[in-house]
Design a protein around this nucleic acid. Structure first.
Lengths: 214, 214, 214, 214
DNA sequence: CATGAATGAGGTTTCATTCAT
DNA sequence: CATGAATGAAACCTCATTCAT
């Protein structure tokens, strides 16, 4: 391992350290209320150091999205490229589980993604980051739609454009997550994400099957 | 009408005037970027006056939710208490249209409702307001679940707890709105909310019907 | 005096109060080392208040120039439009005295005007302010050149373009001021501006006269 | 050459290397906007290394003045000790050309010299550096005044104290440079330094000659 | 009741300087 | 000697909120 490479690795480690701290702070405080000083303190670094690794607060925030989207893509690819001869319906179940794991991987960053105020944030991103986010988003949509495409081809799912299905899955997922979270906030109750997501997916799959009896 | 009452009425009028202005400003700017001065200017009042009607910015913001929830309840009651002998499936279609109108009534306040940063906001609410929000939310859930209850009773929908269905409808709705909005933000494209919402509802209803042929 | 007018007057008074404070602080500290908080403290106001009257630090700084340039123009017009039948040479003496008074009016703001770092500042000005500064600068050049134009017409001064003369007067003036000031800084000695300026002007006028004997 | 001496020489080379880089960076960016990191990068060194050769940013900045003043002195000595029997008036022309070359040698450091904000800088200098600057300044004044002294002795120039003349030459020079620069900044036009300086000197020389016809 | 000028705490970001390697 | 990552003080500016009129 060259000295160059070691440095690069060290640098990456620091980035991760900061992102982990940022994730925690943003999760607890939300984007606006989280201060760079909070994050620095959480990372046990000085505020100035953060700026050696991230151009500004927006960019630090956004880089967290990338992590989640990357994880999502990995999980989806795993489902799509499955070698074990899963049926289309089984694949939707695997999809559901993948979505659930994505949520568990980083619940609060994910929620922040749906955060509309991010519109302001997105505008200020370096085009580099924005391009990455777009690419990852599109890729995950494409992967999901492949699942439905296959089901349609095999005559198991009704014949609608698979991307529309993928959109709806995304929407259901977002909706369940947000709805559960918002109930949790208002009521202080624990959430039933797994259960609700399960039912929602079941209903969805029932709705797109060509024949009721499996 | 007593003098007391007239005063109260006048006061309410002012509150509404401010809320209308606030809605416009929050919609365009988002919660954080909207300043109290912006809102005051929009309402053609002075900043100080706002504080005579709302304790602080959070409370003003939150009171907008009430408006949306009230509108939602009115629309739902209309569907539930329908006298025209609509079938359960027709009622779900009416429900879909109601949801769509709710979105149109005040798209951005609604989106902000799903806004997790509001978690900070919700914590700072007067318990009075919070109680109102909770009550209205529950009421709308109950109204929705009545539609499904009826469908289940009539054997048209599968036999699951109607509140679960209502939750899912809420989730689909939230998800479609947010997903469409976020795509609109990222791509700068126009949104297809109506279309996507239509397909999602259709799939949902297909999924909960006991038999394919109506 | 209408209420509108009184308010406007009050507002102008505050602006002046801030500018006076700013002038003092910039003079002592220089542009970069002077902080808005320093100025606020000097004006016995809070930092935020400064921003109600000036968009930002640059604009506050630049507005001081306007004051000096306005004073310069007043003095120059007085010399140019003189009714007392001064000879061209006498007018150059009046010009010299005017320049000297301009320096006394606000020595340090004037010095800051020659401040090259202001190049950065000038770029950030509102075009409104920049336009004012340009206009005032040009006007003072024009006024000065009128003095020389008259002398040339009367055959008292050699026939060169009067604006060139005006430029040189400005340059001599700037040069004397800066040179005196820099000597003062390095040596801690008192300055001899009046004397040096007097000699410089005398030499200048001798140099442009068509004939030694007046 | 002892090992001690070689080290010293090596050290001096490094200092020069840094100063050359600093000159370039200060020229482009101005004192405040130039960062130590910029300079380090330009010198292909690390920021820390700069501090092994210069106590701080101010001292690095000021050491540039020395270079300019040294060059000025070399040029002036060349004019004063001329062997080619130049007349006093010709010497003033040579002086003018020398001043012009000084400006070309390092325009922006020179301008920064007139920069009053440097007052803050000068205060923080090591007395060693300050002494050097003073000595070089005085020396150049003395050299210039010798030119005028000779002219006075020969009856070509009027009988005033030669140092006063030297002061005025310095002032005219400073003034022209700054005035030209500030016009360039405001108008974005190219500068006419050579031309303006030429006219100013011509007028100056005309003004101190005892007789119009040479 | 209404005003709106003033407040001042607090946020983001920069950069001269240090010090462990 | 040289490095360069890290520091942290300090600057500018915003804006929710107050209070004298």
């Amino acid at each position: 391992m060259g000295i160059q490479e070691r440095k690069e690795r060290e640098r990456e480690r620091r980035r991760q350290q900061i992102m982990v701290a940022a994730k925690r702070v943003f999760s607890v405080r939300g984007y606006q209320k989280a201060t760079m000083e909070d994050i620095a303190k959480e990372a046990e670094l000085s505020p100035g150091t953060l700026y050696l690794y991230f151009r500004n607060k927006d960019e630090l925030f956004s880089s967290l999205f990338i992590r989640v989207l990357q994880y999502l893509n990995i999980r989806l690819e795993y489902v799509v490229n499955d070698e074990t001869e899963m049926s289309p319906v089984q694949k939707t179940e695997a999809l559901r589980d993948a979505m659930y794991d994505v949520y568990e991987f980083d619940p609060l960053t994910l929620i922040n993604m749906f955060h509309l105020q991010s519109s302001d944030i997105l505008k200020n991103l370096s085009s580099e980051l924005l391009t990455d986010i777009k690419a990852l988003s599109r890729n995950s949509l494409n992967l999901m739609s492949k699942i439905f495409e296959e089901g349609i081809k095999k005559g198991v799912f009704i014949d609608r454009h698979p991307v529309a299905f993928a959109d709806i899955v995304w929407a259901i997922f977002s909706g369940v997550v947000l709805w559960e979270e918002s109930k949790r906030i208002i009521d202080g109750e624990k959430n039933y994400l797994k259960e609700t997501l399960g039912i929602a997916f079941e209903i969805f799959v029932r709705g797109i099957k060509t024949d009721r009896k499996q």
